[in-house]
């Protein structure tokens, strides 16, 4: 299994009695594209933070790629995330004072794997496959359109060749056209690199693109 959660319970640090997320058993198989939907505040981001190791799992077990995140130290989780998990958010995916190439290099600098070729050489094909024109590569991020930024964000998330891509409402800031382009590019890349996708959104209209659709309320006993 790519992702396995069992007996997980996450509580607010300020209110230890109040659970935000409680998952008895939930798993995602390799090379699935999973769509998890639910209203905002239902614990979607918490689920993603748990899977990516940003949030420490105090109760229950979380394993990704067969490795137990809850048994790892914080530092090892950081390294594991850099090596194996790509992450795309709704916004603020990129360091705004760096350009596209620098953002991707930054992501690569935290990983111990990926393509170690220097400069833009290894990044170029990636950006090209995501339809980011070369004239945009050295522009400050703030000068790129939202659609361009999200595509650069995917390139950044993919540069270390992660097995799992986690997407947190990545299309919510995009208009209809850009959303469709984004999704088709994303799906073809996932297919090409044989990755697993965990995609969270409140927009049910996207569900048709995925192999597995899951309501968060179906797995989270609290919601």
């Amino acid at each position: 299994m790519m992702i396995e959660l069992s007996g997980v319970s996450v509580t607010q640090p300020s209110a230890p009695d109040l659970s935000i997320l409680e998952i008895e058993n939930w798993s995602v198989a390799y090379r699935q594209t999973v769509f998890v939907h639910g209203p905002s505040g239902s614990g979607k981001s918490t689920l993603l933070n748990l899977v990516s190791g940003l949030l420490e799992c105090r109760k229950g077990g979380v394993s990704v790629l067969g490795e137990r995140l809850d048994h790892m130290s914080r530092r090892r989780r950081d390294r594991f995330r850099a090596n194996h998990i790509g992450y795309v958010f709704q916004r603020f995916n990129l360091v705004h004072y760096l350009n596209a190439i620098e953002n991707i290099e930054l992501a690569r600098s935290f990983s111990e794997r990926g393509d170690r070729r220097t400069g833009a050489d290894s990044i170029r094909p990636l950006l090209e496959s995501l339809n980011v024109a070369s004239r945009e590569w050295h522009k400050p991020i703030s000068q790129l359109s939202m659609g361009q930024q999200q595509r650069v964000a995917i390139a950044r998330a993919l540069v270390n060749r992660p097995e799992l891509l986690v997407a947190d409402e990545p299309t919510s800031s995009l208009d209809q056209d850009n959303r469709d382009t984004f999704l088709s590019v994303l799906m073809s890349i996932i297919e090409e690199h044989k990755m697993t996708l965990l995609f969270v959104s409140h927009d049910m209209g996207l569900a048709q693109h995925f192999t597995q659709v899951q309501a968060l309320s179906g797995i989270n006993r609290v919601a």
Binding site: R74, D78, R81, Y87, A107, F110, R156
Partner: peptide, 14 residues
Amino acid sequence: NHEIHLLRVLGAPS
């Protein structure tokens, strides 16, 4: 804030 969050997600240790 966003930058700090982003760097953490990319795998930057604290």
